[in-house]
């Protein structure tokens, strides 16, 4: 693993992506502590101010400090995105592996269902689930996790099938190894890498998806400072104070870029032959 890390930091994508993610993590952990103001505090006289010396990124319609709110919002945004991805990845990996190993009609049926679910645009599917579960941050997480599952299942299955074709698996079969040894010791270490890469990139989609749900009023609820929600709340004042939506919007894009970069760096670093 330290080896992988070293490889990872040597790729420019890994380095930049990792740096931004680290900063976001710091904000998520210590956000309220390092924030210059209380994210909930109203500064009535400084409503709608632009970036400046006191309020670095300006203030919103209640005069709340935007920088403080973004820092405070990092926690819910990051946590929800990573958790949603983890949920979808684990569920998808289990389904995909089962499908690949059981094969036959089970595989066929599972993949048909996966195809069908994937024919529903991801966002629409998430919207439907959230509508069933009710609008809240946690429900958005669950909905996104469920929406990610079919895609991850499909990817896991194809990676597993590709590894299954390799001669080192054939060699294990010819040696008379048990099925569980072949799956756990020969195949799994080779399947995990690509799945981690895919999952990392999915975190970027999760950040974007959660923010979109909040924006549509189906994710985190006020007074949360989840970034998507901040953009949504800034919407009525779009032409009055554009900074209000610009900064949380940029925060979303920055974190999503970071996970995209990090995932690509990881792909290069995890290649054992590199």
């Amino acid at each position: 693993m330290p080896d992988t890390l070293r490889h990872l930091l040597r790729t420019p994508q890994g380095l930049i992506g990792g740096g931004i993610i680290l900063m976001a993590l710091l904000a998520a952990i210590g956000g309220p502590a390092i924030a210059p103001f209380d994210p909930e505090a109203f500064h009535v006289r400084a409503r709608f101010s632009g970036p400046g010396a006191t309020y670095w990124l300006g203030t919103d319609q209640f005069g709340r400090d935007i920088l403080s709110r973004i820092l405070a919002g990092a926690r819910s945004t990051l946590f929800l995105a990573v958790a949603a991805t983890a949920l979808g990845t684990v569920a998808g990996a289990v389904l995909g592996t089962l499908s690949a190993f059981i094969g036959g009609w089970v595989d066929e049926a599972l993949m048909r269902i996966v195809d069908a679910v994937m024919a529903i645009p991801n966002l629409l599917f998430t919207l439907l689930i959230v509508t069933v579960l009710g609008a809240s941050g946690v429900n958005a997480l669950i909905a996104l996790g469920i929406a990610f599952t079919p895609g991850m299942a499909r990817i896991t299955r194809s990676v597993a099938l590709a590894v299954r074709q390799q001669d080192f698996v054939n060699a294990a079969v010819a040696r008379g190894e048990t099925g569980s040894f072949i799956v756990l010791r020969e195949m799994l270490p080779n399947v995990v890498g690509p799945i981690i890469v895919e999952a990392t990139i999915r975190v970027a989609f999760a950040v974007m998806g959660l923010a979109t749900l909040s924006f549509l009023g189906l994710g985190a609820q006020p007074p949360s400072s989840e970034w998507g929600l901040m953009v949504a709340e800034a919407r009525p004042y779009l032409f009055r104070n554009a900074w209000m939506m610009l900064f949380p919007g940029l925060a979303i894009a920055l974190v999503a870029v970071a996970f995209n970069l990090f995932g690509d760096g990881l792909r290069d670093a995890l290649n054992p032959r590199a």
Binding site: M208, T212, G228, A234, L238, A242
Partner: peptide, 15 residues
């Protein structure tokens, strides 16, 4: 580009 949700792009285009 791939990291900007549509609603962010849309608001950027709008302003």
């Amino acid at each position: 580009g791939v990291s900007m949700p549509e609603f962010v792009t849309a608001t950027l285009v709008l302003i």
